[in-house]
Nucleic acid binder design. Sequence first.
DNA 1: GGCATAATAATTTTT
DNA 2: TTATTATGCC
Length: 985
Amino acid sequence: MSDPAVDEPAESDSAASESAKGDLAESAPTPNAKQRQLIENTAGIYVVDAGAGTGKTFAVTRRYAAIVDQPDVEPADVLLVTFTRSAATEMKERIVDHSTYSLRELADASIQTFHSHCLDLLEEHGYRAPTHLGIDDRITGATRVVEDELVEAELFREFLDGFQDDHPEYAEFFRALSDRSDLLDVVTEFASKGVFPTADGWYRDGESFVDGDFETFQDLFDEVNEPRNGGSKQSVLRSKLNGYGKRRTYLPDAPDKGVLRGDGTKQAPEETARRAFDEDREDLKAFVHDVYHEYLAFALSRSYLTFGFLQLFAFVLLCENESLRDRVSFEYVMVDEFQDTSEIQFKLALLLAGTDNLCAVGDWKQSIYSFQYADVENIRSFEDRIDRFASDLNDDQERVAFPVDDVETIELEENYRSTQSILDFSEETLVTPASNNEDVDEDVLDDVVSLSSNASFDNTTIEGIHHPDQHEAVLTKIQSIVGNDDYAVEDEDGDPRPPQFGDVAVLTRTRDFGRELLSVADDYDFPMAYDGGVELFRTDQAKLLLAWLRILESDADRGWAVVMEEAGYTLDEIDHVLENRNYPSNMVTFRERLDAMEAVGAVARRVFDRYGFTGEYADVILHTVQSLHDTSTLTRGDLVRIVERGIENGSTHDVVTSAGVDSVTVQTIHSAKGLEYPIVVLANMNAGKFPPNVGGSSVVQYEEPVGLRQRKIYADVEEHAHPHVYDNWTHDVLRHCLQDDNDEERRLLYVAVTRAENHVVFAGGEDPNTFYEELPFEGTRLDPAVEPVDRRETVQTQLPFSVVTPEGPTGHTPHTLMDDAVFEDADVELETTESMAFRGRDFGSRVHDFAEAYALGEDVSPTTDGHDDQRHVKAFIDGLSGDLHVEERAVLPLEIDGEQVTVSGIVDLVHETADRIEIIDYKTDQSRRAESEYRKQLSVYYHVVSECFPEKVVTARLFYTATNERRTIEPVSLAELEDVVRASS
DNA sequence: GGCATAATAATTTTT
DNA sequence: TTATTATGCC
């Protein structure tokens, strides 16, 4: 145990009185000048450019505290909107530390996402909201929110079936759709922009949005129609129109290619814009309107709302009901992550603001959620938009009752995360072409607020490696980095220290790459963990398990086909075998062996053994299956259904790998947003992968300035006969004007780079992409030579428990059971805190020391050094009532193969009430991958306590201190524990 | 260099 | 389905 840990006195409310120290990110005790400007100016409209690592959360929470600590202001007067629920929780906790309010007092405060606030509004006042759109239905207590996208898609399909039957007049539109579910996208997108249908038209000025605005369109058109190379080269548009009508035939009234492109010119004629835009879209509008309106009615009749509809109805309600608007509006509104807001959310913020005390905080450079309808223009063109939206809302009555023309901009400039080299480099990512021919507009740099680093040293390396065996090359590179002084990272005192595996994060654009990398790492015993959701049931492991289960159940063809294909049979061979039911004998033998097994868990295990699936996916599938049902009562049929359902709805599960504490993290860039790592490896920079050279494919799409585009395809009677005949050629012109460029890809690149504190490595495969080629770093071919890792030497894992000599516990309270003497006799090796070092800080002990002291009621308060662990622990413990016991040890006697052995386990906290005992183990977020081992450790204690206190409900939980997640753990069965002990002895 | 055509390969994920 | 890149021709 080390570390000064908790030496900071409880902080006072006034930022000014705090001591000037602390060099770590978000929670530096003293705000810098710009942060102070934001914190202290709470009246008026502010838009805050808060770049990566500039202490945004810190400033926002302090500002909130400053607002509510004013004499006449209560938390009920303030709305603080966050992007995710967990961000809301985090905000609350951090505010508690800096205001006079307790967590309990803030429990009902409006610190939440737009969606949950809308839900609250509708639950309380939404009963008649649908009538404003001419829908004769109500939102009631029985109305639920469908959160799962796939469930919604299923419901929508069901709706469309009925709709199609009821509306034969729309048959031709349905024929034109390659995928009916595109219609759901249209509906969702309309909803996200505040365009709603009424019974016989569009809500408010919705129709003008649907029609689009020619002026705006013309600007876009002109932009792509600009001749290039000083007039010597045709415009992008003209070049693209070269393919006009290439593989399709239009109806006779379509203009000729030559007319649209212009003859002997470098650009398409101006007239082309008009022609394409003026296409008659009335029928299409009616179609989309009816789908939209009837779907809303359908959803309400089924008593459900989607995320998008929550906002839709809340918006309508606030628009229509003036007195309600007055009652529910806030004196102060703050919106965090403003770059991730959609158009309707911006408008909701205006409707919810009772005064002009409005604050939008974000970083346009980190806007990477456009697929979620985030609109980066909300923050980039804040002043224009607030002006436009407010006057739109005020067109028939005053809804935004304050002036919006006085907008103050605050730019946070000090970066607490990265070196200056990385910050400077990061700007390059925003102007790097994504493909060889792309012309990047360098003007975006004018909008970049350059950041200045306060790192204590700058030894940054930025480099690229590539090799066809990219996975191995990445591992090799990481091995050369770990322990290498050339890649020193910053320790807790701001001094350089050699990096460890835990300092490295591999970020990728896709989950797939992460998964592949992890499986290669597994071959070398390389300490690496995938952090994030995996569509577990869509893995090979799950599919093969399903196949064998189907074989067992009914000799199903689709079972045999899968396992035979896996075994390398050709399709012809498989057909032949299936026809004659003459299955390969080794497989038949295996089937018989499986058939003899009773428990499905055992079947699964045996299947995974056969295919050598020893990795985490197999593990998690087994675990998931077991935790879904009690293994003893789960039939094969049940399991088949579970896996099928899992495949169908693509449910993701957090994969828990057991690489030990000090291991490399693998994540998607999206999920790494907000996090930081000393060393970032940005992998899979291959042509076509990142950025992908793929465009949208939906047939009916909508963009605000253009309105609806339409393409109807009259397919020949013979399926897929070519050429199709299109009655609408406009789409083929318009689509070229609406191409969004690769800006968001560059922002993704930006997000990835700005996660790094000290070093960045780009990694590519056979064919590195343009980003890799164009960015200013040296890329070298790296021939992989991964050293197989002996984990016992290089990875400091925490042993789940040790096997010791027979000596059972004798006491009968859970706490005397953990008698020190018993424990010491047992000769258990205790890990030292050194082995838990986390990025150079004594992370584990920092948290544990604090947690222990705080749980024991000592007068300590969380440090604010850039990590939230202690704060999270404090909030967690504050929420517990009952007896707390810290650092408990358990020994559990087992009889294994006729021999008495005893295993021991340690837990951090035991929370005991009259009827429950809760066992809690603190873990850093970093250690999540070892969860399956921790499970076993917790289970030792679980079984001991359960046996001694049969009348109490015993639960085991892991508490991830960095992310403030609490996870209930399904204990490992005694039989399984015995297996583990057998294996380790 | 400019233009047209053929070959090629294709995503992220929260409420 | 569609955007990019490679290619072949002028």
